[in-house]
């Protein structure tokens, strides 16, 4: 299908963006990587009168570490996440997630800010930022506001962003030597949205004891699902087969997945248990594995 006739303006600074937004109000739609927006325009599912291109706003770009916090600009493309050395060092979960996101052409265009703002429940990055305990930096003419990732995703395709706010960056707390993270998913074909996925981060001390586990599932709810009971079943315990089994069992309470085209809710529950085992079992000590 063809787009309807539509206006376009490029903002080169936040101030210019605020001015354009004030001018066009609800008729304006932000354009960053465009990987979701442009398809919805072609399907005529949304009807903005003007696209405001934010890709040249320097304040939304860049990856840096300051005071032990990794700040990733909202315009960072998925492909950049996958190859940036600071990301690999301070948030390897994101580097590991990048190749799972769609296909190269989409990774070359799509941005982390766009993915988080769209909040697709089957997307990798929302789950990753929740697992990492990240903070979403929202900015508006009123200034900056910091929202914990956990509180950012409020429902199906819904976020805590106010109508005049945009995502400026994601801030990720530093990792410790004891931090372990892992992302795995089950998708029909490589590059597809996952039928179920898990982004996990936890600390594992020298005795093999788990602290601050965060198991965040995607593709199984209305947004990223932090499995609190499964986490509690691991927290403070030595990671062994029994602990993994307890976490798997606790998922029954954590998850209430919807059916989708690929299968019924019970399939997603089953896959979540499988993913829990597969994500955690590589962290088992050698003695456990040998058994």
């Amino acid at each position: 299908m063809k787009w309807p006739a539509i206006g376009y303006a490029r903002a080169t600074s936040l101030d210019e963006l605020w001015r354009l937004q004030a001018e066009h109000g609800a008729a304006a739609q932000l354009l960053a990587g465009g990987q979701t927006l442009l398809a919805t325009l072609a399907f005529r599912l949304s009807d903005p009168k003007i696209l405001l291109d934010i890709t040249r706003i320097a304040a939304l770009r860049g990856i840096a570490v300051q005071d032990g916090v990794l700040r990733i600009g909202a315009l960072t493309r998925h492909a950049e996440l996958g190859r940036d050395p600071l990301v690999a060092q301070h948030a390897p979960l994101l580097a590991e997630a990048a190749p799972l996101i769609a296909h190269p052409a989409i990774r070359n265009r799509g941005t982390i800010g766009g993915s988080l703002a769209y909040a697709d429940p089957a997307a990798e990055l929302p789950a990753c930022v929740v697992a990492l305990g990240a903070t979403i930096v929202a900015v508006s003419p009123r200034g900056e506001r910091r929202v914990p990732a956990e509180a950012f995703f409020t429902g199906l395709l819904q976020t805590a962003l106010a109508p005049d706010e945009i995502i400026a960056a994601v801030e990720i707390p530093g990792t410790q030597p004891t931090t372990r993270s892992r992302i795995i998913e089950v998708a029909r074909r490589s590059g597809d949205y996952a039928m179920a996925g898990l982004a996990a981060r936890l600390s594992l001390n020298a005795e093999g004891r788990v602290t601050s586990p965060r198991l965040v599932f995607f593709g199984v709810g209305s947004g990223p699902v932090l499995a609190a009971r499964a986490g509690a079943a691991l927290d403070g315990w030595v990671l062994d087969s029994a602990a993994i089994a307890a976490a798997q069992a606790a998922l029954a309470e954590d998850l209430d997945p919807p059916a989708d085209m690929h299968g019924p809710p019970e399939m997603k529950r089953h896959l979540a248990r499988v993913l829990t085992f597969r994500a955690l079992s590589p962290l088992l000590r050698a003695s456990e594995v040998a058994e």
């Binding site: 089950v186 029909r188 039928m195 690929h262 299968g263 019924p264 399939m267 089953h270 896959l271």
Partner: peptide
């Protein structure tokens, strides 16, 4: 057919 994960499970 198709032999989907759901059918195999």
């Amino acid at each position: 057919q198709p032999f989907t994960p759901a059918r195999i499970l």
